[in-house]
Write a protein that binds this DNA or RNA. Structure first.
Lengths: 236, 236
DNA sequence: TGATCTTTTGTACGATAGTACAAATCACAT
DNA sequence: ATGTGATTTGTACTATCGTACAAAAGATCA
């Protein structure tokens, strides 16, 4: 039960536990939860299948631990960046800073490993798509607070936009963010090699630029459900 | 091999085959490919597991047939709407019409079944997230043509924006579209019940409005990699 | 060194997966 | 009515799944 570290606790010995977590993260993020077996994970980590059971009890427990490992640092980082962003005076610049505070940790943060942020975000995207129950619970109770904080901050910098629109647009932001991490090769393919979808810096700049513009779009007139403009004449 | 329809071919008899396809579509779209067993599908369709093998040979074959069923009508619809959109004179209106031509069929196509378009699009989103091989092949060879056509059309209505940016932004569009279909409840939750994420008309209007603005954002200055504005001072 | 706790290994078990296949059943032209 | 091809059913096979558990190996400290 109790762990007795001989040396300073911050310098962890190269654990098998860590290797399993890393391997599971990678495999889940690229293939989904059910497509990956415990044996696959153990093999990728150079471990014995029974070792996974020993450390995490069940496959769900392994996924749960991956979330636990990443959620706190990522949301902390986001809070810091958000707090800094809210101090920006100029409203336009502030909006961009807020969006950046939301996007950047998703691509690059991560507690220990560099690039772990992107991998974990991709994992969340895949779990979300699969409707994974374990992930659903964690997300609802861990990420909604952060999301609300960002939505409120954005709403404050865009007072003339109804909150509903802000929610929709930040939802689109998360969808675009997820999809960029899920299939970065699609960008390279469709741009005929001119753009590198796998370059985080590139993706971040593009995403921030596009999203800020989306947030700044005029408010949707919800009071007029029949808001058909001349455009809509083409039988939609 | 040869089917002998007694009555007019358009009025299909209520096939078990159709029921299996519909059930599989629904289950795959909500739970992913590997989480759903052939027995689950058969049970949901009121069929015998062996019947699935008879009609589609393998589980992959079933997924393949779902794609075959939907791809042609949806892309046809998109082509029609795109052609109509390209005839719109005003550039701003034309851009909106093009985006709408891309978005609307994803939510509503599939002339046969109601809501079939949204279901199939959600399925594509989930398969994309899972990195499904069958889906990957079909998408690359079927959807890339359509995507290129839309990208070109959008690029024509936004001549001052580099094609690379257009590719990124349409990628974001697809990601937002997918995510809206994957977790519509999140919108309802984050808006505290003020918005209904499950209402297609609502989602479409919000998505079109936001996306048009994103496309119209100023071009990204790619020649200046160190484009750090004052905003970036907040340690990103 | 030897005792004790932690971790890893190897193996096994029941459940369920995808799929094959023969028998039963249905649809329908003659 | 009956024979024939299309479909549905029932069952079975093998592979692999998640997980349990005892034994081996490694680490830690009196």
């Amino acid at each position: 039960m109790s762990r007795k570290p001989t040396s300073k606790d911050t310098a962890r010995k190269p654990n098998m536990r860590e290797a399993i977590l890393a391997a599971a993260e990678e495999l889940f993020a690229t293939n989904g939860f059910n497509a990956v077996s415990v044996r696959d994970i153990a093999h990728a980590a150079g471990a014995n299948p029974g070792s996974v059971t020993y450390h995490f009890k069940t496959k769900d427990g392994l996924l749960l631990e991956i979330y636990r490992r990443h959620c706190a640092p990522m949301n902390l980082r986001r809070s810091e960046l958000l707090a800094a962003a809210k101090r920006v005076r100029d409203l336009q610049d502030r909006l961009e800073a807020i969006v950046r505070a939301y996007v950047v940790p998703a691509f690059t943060s991560g507690s220990d490993l560099a690039g772990g942020g992107a991998r974990f975000t991709r994992l969340r995207a895949v779990m979300s798509a699969e409707g994974n129950e374990v992930a659903r619970k964690i997300i609802a109770q861990t990420f909604d607070d952060t999301s609300h904080a960002f939505i409120d901050a954005i709403h404050e910098s865009l007072p003339h936009i109804p909150r509903t629109d802000v929610v929709w647009r930040s939802h689109f932001l998360l969808g675009a963010l997820y999809y960029s991490l899920v299939t970065p090769d699609r960008v390279s393919r469709l741009s005929r090699g001119e753009a590198d979808g796998s370059d985080p810096a590139n993706a971040i700049e593009q995403l921030v630029q596009a999203t800020v513009a989306a947030f700044q779009a005029p408010a949707l007139d919800q009071a007029a459900p029949a808001r058909r403009r001349a455009v809509a004449s083409s039988k939609v």
